[in-house]
Design a protein around this nucleic acid. Structure first.
Lengths: 235, 235
DNA sequence: ATCCGAACCAATTCGCTAATGGTTAGCGGA
DNA sequence: TCCGCTAACCATTAGCGAATTGGTTCGGAT
């Protein structure tokens, strides 16, 4: 028999996988999401290191964890260079500084987008804008809002500006800054944002760079004002 | 007399500055551009560490060197993590794309700079502008030109924008793109750039954001036109 | 023949020391 | 009396070696 007791091994492996999943979900991991070493896990689960590695292979294939030789095993996604840069910047900048940077970048990006957008690009933008107003919860709306702005930057067709925008976006979405932005979001502000998004996209569709830049600037200034108000209320 | 021999000290300081400049320009530095420790420089120049530090202060204000406690003193620009990113971008972008990005970023940066520049900042900018027209060779002039634009970005006081600018600057200075820029530089274009630099700094000194942005935009458009011409001539 | 455990390899982190830029206290000259 | 300099000190970082950790291979047990 090529596999003496393959079924039993299968069940043991999936049990280890389950215990690891529980360990990750339980939130008992340190701040950086680091898992115990493989050897320690093997001892804790009263099994061999090999089984632990197999289980970790599964979890890694699922994208639930990432590993690096000499470094360790971590829950979540591996950090890419942009996030590292963003993390450094977050320490030295405040939400208003981010809005300032957006005000520098995004109007010009919108203008370029207006120059270059094809009909299908405009359709994509409209679809995204429509999605923003669907969800009730602020977090999902933020997600689609980010997607809209990012798509505008992508359509603008300048790789450098897209990277710069991505940097700002990364800083913007950094955990810890969600609270003031969530506070700043109300039903009223959402409605205003929707109208402003529509105005931006209209200008882009009309291939009107100046109008697109102006509409984007107005939108960002509105957001900045709301954010400033929120920060003022807070502290 | 409040200053015993202030003049003599001045001359000694500027001599140290000159020797340091020569040391940097001579290209006898190691690959990473590291300068000898301050103590060693003091010994070599037969002076005190204080004078060396003052001289280095000048060079740092000019953006020619950067220092970090415990790390050392280096010629050139402090390495952002942008370097790796820039290498990726270089492959997917052309010189005109860089100019496009600069046209998006730098006018707004100049406006912010105009809002926030102190008298000493303006003085630094004027000193840099004066240095651009001194050297005969294009490469050194480019160096000082870069230092001027970077200082404007630094004075603007927004860390994110400074990083974004650094990204563009890194791409811009990537080897292989020097040739068309060198071809685009003539005695005429240098004189025009000088005047435009002066106009930018005047607007900044006058705390005129709109004027600074307009002057910067004009300057970059002039550069872009020259670059486009150069590329066209090339083929 | 297959699979597991132990040993080994490579990359990283940690703790320490030396080196280096930044700062301050105290002295000497005008 | 005041200013500026030298020397010592502080904070941060590089360099190095030992320990840690994921990745791999080899020998043996079933």
């Amino acid at each position: 028999m090529p596999e003496p007791d393959g079924a039993a091994q299968e069940t043991e492996l999936s049990e280890v996988v389950g215990r690891l999943r529980h360990l990750i979900d339980a939130g008992r991991l340190p701040e950086d999401g680091r898992l115990p070493p493989e050897r320690a896990l093997a001892a804790e689960f009263c099994t061999g290191r090999r089984q632990v590695r197999r289980a970790l292979d599964h979890l890694e294939a699922e994208g639930l964890i990432w590993r690096h030789q000499g470094k360790g095993t971590f829950a979540g996604q591996p950090p890419d260079p942009t996030t590292k840069m963003a993390a450094k910047i977050v320490a030295e900048v405040d939400p208003l500084g981010v809005m300032e940077a957006r005000l520098c970048l995004e109007p010009s990006i919108a203008a370029l987008c207006a120059e270059r957008a094809q009909a299908e690009d405009v359709a994509r933008l409209r679809a995204l804008a429509a999605r923003i107003k669907l969800p009730a919860d602020a977090e999902t709306a933020e997600l689609w809002d980010g997607a809209l702005h990012r798509t505008i930057a992508r359509v603008a067709g300048n790789r450098i500006l897209l990277t710069a925008f991505g940097l700002v976006d990364e800083v913007r979405h950094h955990p810890g800054w969600q609270a003031p932005r969530a506070r700043a979001r109300t039903a009223d502000s959402a409605r205003i944002s929707d109208r402003q998004h529509a105005a931006i996209i209209d200008a882009i569709a009309a291939h009107d760079p100046v109008g697109a830049a102006a509409a984007m600037r107005l939108h960002l200034e509105t957001l900045a004002a709301g954010l400033a108000q929120s920060l003022e209320d807070q502290g």
